[in-house]
């Protein structure tokens, strides 16, 4: 039986493949030298980059330090804005605080019932018409707080808490935080502005800001050298500086990470 042309070619090609598979050609000696040279060049390129990486990180640290310093000098209100922002955030966080029945102390209930006849104790149920009568009463004193209606018990009668003035005088120290929240909610806009003015941070002379910057840079250097750093010492009892210090430190750390990642890439 005669083979087809395809089969014939397949057998021929198989024959050729076997012969050519083990076939070797002479290779000029210069080729290995060129390969070796290229491999050395490749190796050489990688080493200086590793050496320079440390220098790059130092350059980045210096650049960041000068940048932060320049930013602080050119924006004298930067610290003021930060402290305002911090106050604002604090208010936002504390605003929705509700007075749960479990949190009130017997002392507090006693005080409120003795100083204000409109206030009813949490434990006593109050008829709904009493609430309306309270609301329809003549306007209160400007320092008086708007009663907070308890929302945690929708089916029970609402409870009115003591007004702020009485609260301030006789409340225990542990409730100081709650007090500040009520003050911020209840005070009239004009009073709020006045109080804000009183609380607002007045920028100190540039001498102090300079010394703060110097201290931050010193601490950063210590951190770079691997020495333990106590960031709290920078505050020196001034809590308004806390955010700025943390901001500077965070910016420095984040920037260094970005620089490292970029150069690794």
């Amino acid at each position: 039986m005669k083979k087809s042309s395809g089969d014939n070619w397949d057998s021929l090609e198989k024959n050729w493949r076997e012969k050519l598979d083990s076939h070797k050609e002479e290779v000029p000696a210069a080729i290995w030298n060129q390969i070796e040279k290229k491999l050395d060049e490749k190796k050489g390129k990688a080493v200086p980059f590793i050496i320079h990486r440390r220098q790059w990180s130092w350059a980045a640290v210096l650049l960041i330090s000068f940048g932060v310093g320049w930013w602080q000098l050119s924006n004298p209100n930067a610290l003021v804005d930060d402290s305002k922002m911090a106050n604002h955030i604090q208010t936002e966080i504390n605003a929705p605080v509700q007075h749960l029945p479990n949190t009130s102390t017997p002392e507090l209930e006693e005080i409120s019932s003795s100083t204000n006849p409109n206030v009813v104790s949490h434990s006593e149920p109050m008829p709904s018409h009493d609430i309306h009568s309270n609301l329809n009463q003549e306007p209160r004193n400007t320092t008086e707080s708007i009663p907070v209606i308890e929302e945690s018990k929708p089916n029970t009668n609402p409870v009115i808490l003591a007004d702020n003035r009485t609260f301030e005088k006789e409340k225990p120290a542990s409730l100081a935080k709650e007090e500040s929240v009520e003050m911020l909610i209840d005070i009239q806009p004009s009073q709020a502005n006045n109080q804000e003015k009183e609380n607002s941070y007045v920028p100190e002379p540039s001498k102090k800001r300079h010394s703060l910057f110097a201290r931050v840079v010193k601490q950063l250097r210590q951190a770079i050298d691997g020495e333990p750093v106590d960031w709290q010492t920078l505050k020196q009892g001034d809590p308004k500086l806390e955010n700025s210090i943390h901001q500077v430190a965070n910016t420095y750390i984040k920037t260094e990470q970005v620089v490292q990642r970029t150069f690794q890439f």
Binding site: L20, S22, H23, K24, E25, V27, W32, I35, E36, L39
Partner: peptide, 17 residues
């Protein structure tokens, strides 16, 4: 480098073909 040279020496002739 020594290993690379051996790989080259063993295979260069065939690969040149």
């Amino acid at each position: 480098r020594r290993a690379q040279q051996i790989v080259y020496q063993v295979n260069a002739g065939k690969m040149m073909a």
